[in-house]
Design a protein around this nucleic acid. Sequence first.
DNA 1: TTTACTTTTTAGATTTGCCTAAATTTTATT
DNA 2: AATAAAATTTAGGCAAATCTAAAAAGTAAA
Lengths: 222, 222
Amino acid sequence: MPAKYSSSKENYLKAIFHLQETHGTVTTNDVANELQTRPASVTDMLKKLKAQKLLLYEKYKGFKLSNDGRKVALQIIRKHRLWEYFLVEKLRFGWDEVHEIAEELEHISSKQLIDRLDEFLGFPKTDPHGDPIPDSQGRWVQAKQVDLLNLPLNKVAEVSGIGDQSAEMLELLGHKNIGLGTRLEVKKKFAFDNSLEVKIKNQHTVTISEHVAKNVFVKYDE
Amino acid sequence: MPAKYSSSKENYLKAIFHLQETHGTVTTNDVANELQTRPASVTDMLKKLKAQKLLLYEKYKGFKLSNDGRKVALQIIRKHRLWEYFLVEKLRFGWDEVHEIAEELEHISSKQLIDRLDEFLGFPKTDPHGDPIPDSQGRWVQAKQVDLLNLPLNKVAEVSGIGDQSAEMLELLGHKNIGLGTRLEVKKKFAFDNSLEVKIKNQHTVTISEHVAKNVFVKYDE
DNA sequence: TTTACTTTTTAGATTTGCCTAAATTTTATT
DNA sequence: AATAAAATTTAGGCAAATCTAAAAAGTAAA
């Protein structure tokens, strides 16, 4: 059976999905930028996606994925992340070398292949970057969001939001190398002043005050 | 890095390689037939392959792969067979289910990926159909084998390759419980139609037509 | 060897996905 | 509110890979 959608369409769906999730809104320019292409090309493709009912789109009025489009996007993401897991865990690639290869592998169409791969890998919940892997029905285990004070000790989590976004706060976080998407875990909590020792993935440990901790939100798997 | 050649070009190279190996000569019509396409489309592609020096071609005068074309074809075949091996040995697919999926996987471009996969699989010498896997330099060990018709009576031998790998053939062999590695011996040969009675190790005897026998290759000790 | 048949190639379209340049619509700024 | 700027879409093209129909070249047969 031939693939239902071209690789190109799949890439658009995936990009739109990501922008929707992370920025809330999506614009033609955002998509063009994400896919390293031109706004005019994006407009062309949006029309095709609309014609296939994968996208809700009215010209000049913005757009978002339909339920079907969302489903397709989730399957691509599932494939991408399972292949990344395979590359790192079985073929011993570094976690920073696998993205490009997975970009190609994610377009292999066989659903049976991906389900068997999933099984072979032991049904992993997250990819090597800590992002969740949707299951074969496209369900995610939606990560739980809490502030740093309430993150259980030794749980790896990903920074997903900042409460106080003042320049001072951002300067402090920048200095400590903490930003959106940073992966970290709380190693120690001092009862005296509620300060924390936080280990930042692939870096060393920093100390964070209660005030700061209350304003850093993270996601983690249960 | 982007793929050097389109999937389509790779498919042409592979088809031409196979026709060259098995029939000696290759014609425009053969290629069209092999790839389920039209002769006019083949002519178009031959020109492109010639322009890229992958093919030696003069119109109306026949054609064959250049050294470069041959090298590319062997790399595709390497990838195809390694993926088939992976699908059967690691993901537990049946050896008759893997061809289609491997047709897609063989176009993934990363050379590093395929070399690591090779290593992960333990550098297999043949794919699940018994066909040899070229090494990363494109060399292969051509296994010495005879077809069943030429196997001496009462010699125990091991199935090492299948010529015609159509779904129909594979279905028939599957039904008779003959697969790669099966050990068997020819008990009787009927001169009338060249059909054979074949005793399969640890099982009972089956009858095999000349047509099938010609396409089952075996290895045995002298 | 001349005609008939087959094979191969050309000519001209089509589809997909992309492009540039120009027009249009929306948004932001005086 | 008028105008400038930015975002988006249209218009018109291009390249890859395919197709059909027709022409050309090669092969075979009377």
